[in-house]
Amino acid sequence: MDLDKIAELFGVRVAETNDLDPEWNGMYLHHRRLILIRKGLDHWKHRTILAHELGHAYYRDEVHGDPRLEKRADQYASRLLISEDAYRAAEHLHGPHPGAIAHELGVTLDVVKTWCDIYSRILTR
Rank of each mutant, 00 (worst) to 15 (best):
D2S: 14
I6L: 15
I6H: 00
L9T: 12
V12C: 08
E16F: 01
T17K: 11
N18K: 15
D21K: 13
P22V: 14
P22C: 04
N25L: 14
N25F: 05
M27S: 10
L29C: 10
R33S: 00
I35Q: 01
I37C: 05
K45P: 02
H46R: 15
T48H: 03
T48Q: 00
T48D: 13
H52D: 06
E53W: 04
G55K: 01
H56G: 03
A57T: 00
Y58R: 13
Y59M: 13
V63A: 13
E70H: 08
K71V: 08
R72F: 00
S78E: 07
R79D: 09
L81Y: 07
I82Q: 03
D85V: 15
A86W: 02
E91H: 06
E91R: 11
H92Q: 12
P98I: 03
G99P: 03
A100E: 05
I101Q: 04
H103F: 10
E104W: 05
L105W: 01
G106T: 07
G106N: 01
V107A: 10
V111D: 02
V112I: 15
V112P: 04
K113F: 08
T114D: 05
C116T: 13
D117H: 01
D117T: 13
I118H: 08
Y119A: 02
S120V: 14
R121D: 12
I122K: 09
L123W: 03
R125E: 14
